[in-house]
Amino acid sequence: MTPIINTNNSDRKKRWSQAIAFTIFKLMSYSVVAILILILGFIVSKGIGVISWDFLTKAPEEGMTKGGIFPAIVGTLYLVLGSSLFSFPVGIMSGIYMNEYAAGSKIATFIRIMTNNLSGVPSVVFGLFGMALFVNTMGFGDSILAGSLTLGLLSLPLVIRTTEESLKAIDFSYREGSLALGATKLQTIRKVILPMALPNIITGLILSIGRVSGETAPILFTVAAYFLPKLPTGIFDQVMALPYHLYVITTSGTDIEASRGIAYGTALVLIFIVLLVNILANVLRNYFSKKVKTN
């Protein structure tokens, strides 16, 4: 009889250790949520009072201690736009090549390894590289063009990966069906594959916009300006940018204490962009996945 009692004992012990372990895991998981709520809650509560129509539409005044952040918002918008103009077409084309033309080949493997490597390169190295190539060697100077290209290269791996994965998710029978009807490969991609993959690709592109709008290190030496009295007029102008603005007014402003309020407001605007981008991406994802199911 002894063995049975032992089994019961170890059974209880097993159940106990499971209960304890699971509780710990659950607590740890929810503490991650708590951290997120702490960060968001802190910045929202401190920053919400600063946000006003004037804050969003006026230029900084009195050494960044008063006024708004309009030029920084415009600058970030230009940089997002500029980098997207470069990274979206190149990234999508690259993804198409890897999945539709070179899938499984040595070239695709090589490109994939290089793309992974590029996505591991720290953002400050992109900044160094952008400064050496675009600003100095190509002679663009500190400009929207140099900053956009640097940011575009930085977000390229994300766009490529999203495109490739979206294409991979499409069942092979669609390609065969189209080809069997006499369509060429290009027609198949353009008329069948891309429209199907587009929702997922767009979701990825939106997320990459979120990433680009928050990057600071790559624009430090390629485009960002501490303060500009007027808005940029061409692609060879410098701009102010939201993340850089937050960095300078918290670390090296003329009066750091006095510009704290502006800093909270700027941080809140950045958080708001990220929230917007994430919600938009999630809504799109859910909407399209439902649509696919009902089809």
């Binding site: 951290i35 960060i39 928050g214 600071t216 937050l246 941080a267 990220v274």
Partner: peptide, 13 residues
């Protein structure tokens, strides 16, 4: 969302 927050906001926090 945690992954999307810009590093400069983390630094500020």
């Amino acid at each position: 969302l945690l992954a999307g927050i810009p590093s400069v906001v983390y630094g500020f926090f």
